[in-house]
């Protein structure tokens, strides 16, 4: 991913902890930010605060939403009716980007897969920032053309009698897949279920399995 050069030729007075000088694009970022702050168009504190907002959004949030939907039928009904409202009301998750959320339920008959072919729309309020592969050409180009082959690359084989629904985001709606609850988890607590739910299962590229965890 990282295309810019890191120059390590900065010697003279470098203290041991001194970092390499910033690359071209990083310098551009710093310059634009400083210019906008100097012109009082944005506050420096706003950027710091937004970084905290971003850092507070991870797949662990989405996993809690999914596990709650598995154990609480009323929540599940409300989540499927209006994903954003249910996340706001029950988990206090704010939709800072003012997007809507449609939660797509996987069943015995339907498997959902999420993509943004035009850019990188993603349910950031509940999952954080998307992985690199989600933003790159191969996934975006092929998910709508041959979703079964794409799923197979993730190790997911969907039987032919299961309908695949590919949701392509283009505007204000973001999508979160509600994966199927794995068999053998009847006695699991909500917390134990939460720990099983992975980011990729909420994008729809893999199922939730007993052996997986939040990091994949």
């Amino acid at each position: 991913m990282d295309a810019h050069d890191h120059h390590h030729d900065h010697t003279a007075t470098a203290a041991p902890q001194t970092e390499a000088p910033p690359g071209y694009y990083e310098t551009m970022e710093t310059a634009l930010r400083e210019l906008l702050v100097e012109k009082k168009l944005i506050g420096a504190g706003e950027i710091r605060r937004q970084i905290e907002v971003l850092d507070s959004r991870t797949p662990a949030l989405g996993a809690k939403v999914v596990a709650r939907a598995w154990v609480d039928p009323d929540f599940r009904r409300r989540l499927l009716a209006n994903g954003r409202t249910a996340c706001e009301q029950d988990f206090g998750i704010s939709f800072y980007d003012d997007t809507e959320l449609i939660v797509l339920e996987n069943t015995e008959k339907v498997h959902n897969l999420v993509v943004c072919t035009l850019c990188s729309c993603y349910p950031r309020p509940v999952l954080g920032l998307p992985p690199d592969w989600y933003k790159q050409k191969a996934y975006r180009a092929r998910a709508v053309r041959d979703p079964r082959a794409v799923l197979a690359e993730f190790g997911t084989i969907i039987p032919d009698d299961v309908e695949i629904r590919v949701s392509d985001s283009t505007a204000v709606v973001r999508f979160l897949v509600l994966p199927r609850r794995p068999e053998g988890t009847e006695n699991f607590s909500e917390e134990e279920l939460t720990a099983l739910v992975t980011r990729d299962s909420m994008i729809g590229v893999v199922p939730v399995q007993l052996q997986t965890g939040i990091l994949s």
């Binding site: 992985p131 996934y139 053309r145």
Partner: peptide, 16 residues
């Protein structure tokens, strides 16, 4: 950026 359906290779399952 309008690449839906175009030919493309395998997905590199990378993240950083």
């Amino acid at each position: 950026n309008d690449i839906g359906g175009l030919e493309a290779g395998r997905i590199q399952q990378t993240d950083h």
